[in-house]
């Protein structure tokens, strides 16, 4: 818009927007602040807590008492592993559907999406029994498999919408320029697809990292990712605010940072391309 909003109005909007943003962000901010306090100071009234001395003791204690780094590694392995596995399965499928569309392509895509609509409780018991019988309970492998399956439709869809945007004429140009299928894929298709694949990876890691149904049902300790680890603070450790805050901060910080980078793709991925 060429017209300028009046400065007065802009000041007002700025004030309101910042206030609301602060309120929405406050629980996260408060958690981060509290994680740098001692246990005794953390339960003080808000103002006294804020004024109390800063310390790192909660972080040290979270690590020594419950082996934070193991759960962190579990989260990394499970979210990254399931995402990479899903990508390996989904890239060829999405590529084929985007560039060699057939009569049933649309039906297949819709059907894949429909599997995502199945509520997890609908298959809780069989999955639990299968996991128990195959010795997969509380293993990273088991969770990687389940998270791959539940996120596969989203991965296929996201890749499909990205691949669709690569103009067919460019691939034809490559063919006219003398490229065979191999060089077409290496020099033209892959470089153009990489941004889409990267954002799909990012979004899927976030989704897998925060998944809190199967991770809670199928793990207890050895393979427990951060979701389960934090859930163990439910009681009575939850009353140790500083430690809970330190553990929470460590659990959300990596994904918060990743998430901020992927806002744009998030909308697209989660709405299956319906809103861009």
């Amino acid at each position: 818009m060429a017209r300028k909003a009046s400065t007065q109005r802009k000041v007002l909007v700025t004030a309101i927007a910042w206030t609301i943003a602060f309120l929405i962000f406050f629980p996260i901010l408060w958690t981060i602040l509290m994680s740098f306090k001692s246990e005794g100071d953390a339960i003080k009234a808000p103002f006294d807590m804020l004024m109390s001395p800063w310390s790192f003791e909660s972080y040290a204690e979270v690590q020594t008492r419950s082996n934070y780094s193991r759960h962190f590694m579990n989260s990394v392995v499970i979210s990254l592993g399931s995402t990479l596995l899903a990508l390996v399965i989904a890239i060829p499928a999405a590529w084929a559907m985007a560039f060699v569309p057939g009569r049933r392509t649309k039906d297949i895509l819709m059907w894949m999406l429909s599997t995502k609509m199945m509520p997890a409780v609908g298959v809780l018991i069989p999955m639990y029994l299968i996991f128990r019988d195959f010795g997969l309970l509380d293993t990273r492998t088991g969770l990687v498999v389940v998270l791959t399956l539940i996120n596969l439709p989203i991965v296929v869809w996201m890749l499909y919408t990205y691949f669709k945007e690569i103009p067919g004429e460019i691939l034809e140009a490559a063919r006219m320029d003398g490229a065979n299928l191999r060089s077409e894929i290496i020099y033209v298709l892959t470089p153009m697809a990489v941004p889409g694949i990267a954002s799909t990876l990012l979004l899927n890691v976030i989704l897998a990292w925060n998944e809190a149904f199967w991770t809670l049902q199928l793990t207890t300790s050895a393979a427990a990712p951060l979701t389960q680890f934090i859930a163990s603070y439910s009681s009575p450790e939850g009353l140790f605010y500083a430690k809970l805050s330190a553990a929470s901060t460590m659990a959300i910080a990596p994904i918060l940072i990743l998430g901020w980078f992927s806002q744009k793709q998030l909308v697209r991925g989660l709405t299956f391309g319906a809103v861009k």
Partner: peptide
């Protein structure tokens, strides 16, 4: 198409967006 020895200029130009002009021209 690659073996016919013909060159084509497309309506949308179909340049490779990730390559520099030099790389585009030298691709064939």
């Amino acid at each position: 198409p690659a073996k016919r020895g013909l060159a084509m200029v497309f309506q949308s130009y179909a340049l490779y967006p990730h390559m520099s002009v030099r790389k585009n021209i030298s691709f064939p």
